[in-house]
Design a protein around this nucleic acid. Structure first.
Lengths: 107, 107
DNA sequence: GTCGTAGTTCGATGGCGACCGTACACGGCG
DNA sequence: CGCCGTGTACGGTCGCCATCGAACTACGAC
């Protein structure tokens, strides 16, 4: 009983639960910004291992959690791999131009 | 000689010295976000004392310094009062849509 | 000159968050 | 079954930053 899978149920905020503050705080870190840029570049989903970041796996998990909690990315579980994607639609709806402005920045 | 005025010469970054990271970090604080919103609302310049923020003067100085160093605001000295304004043009040029997206957020 | 007002600078403190290593839970494959 | 490979959870450390109070400078008015 209780299907012992205590893998976090992977909860994401609804649109109206997202705040610009949380999004800005999520984007205001070089590692997380790199993650967002990679997700934006490759239009498809990217597994955690497919992300190139200069931190260990546990730290990566930490960053992905923050991005997910802010509503910046969505995660989908498939077997043992977790696929991540940008929540472009929701971000553009709530904060039109914000994501594009960030991505437009020269590296 | 040396015109003893050691009031900080109020240096601002040029456009090509501004980074999206610094801007995001500057915006990712509730107090600073409130400052930016107030500057955006009142199209004119606002003195430090005219800003409504829930912190002491010294902390306000600290926040204005960060916003200025990131290139988000400009400061102009006039007597003992310091007038602040949003660098809309520069921000829109470098990160088109970013500022508008932030300001579009529901409070 | 003497206030009062506007804002900065300095030093100290407290809390949050980025980071790591280790241990653990799953799922797939032999 | 045992073993990898993927990723999470936990505990701990360390550094940065938001915050404050107090002392200070600068300007204007009286």
């Amino acid at each position: 009983m209780a299907a012992t899978t205590h893998l976090t149920p992977l909860v994401h905020p609804e649109r109206d639960e997202m705040t610009v503050e949380a999004v800005l705080r999520a984007l205001a870190d070089p590692v997380r910004l790199a993650i967002v840029r990679q997700l934006a570049r490759s239009e498809a989903e990217v597994s955690c291992g497919g992300l190139e970041v200069p931190v260990t796996k546990s730290t990566l998990t930490h960053h992905l959690g923050i991005l997910r909690a802010a509503g910046v990315i969505a995660g989908r579980q498939d077997g043992t791999t977790r696929f991540n994607s940008l929540r472009r639609n929701d971000l553009d709806e709530l904060f039109p131009g914000l994501l594009d402005g960030v991505l437009a920045a020269r590296r």
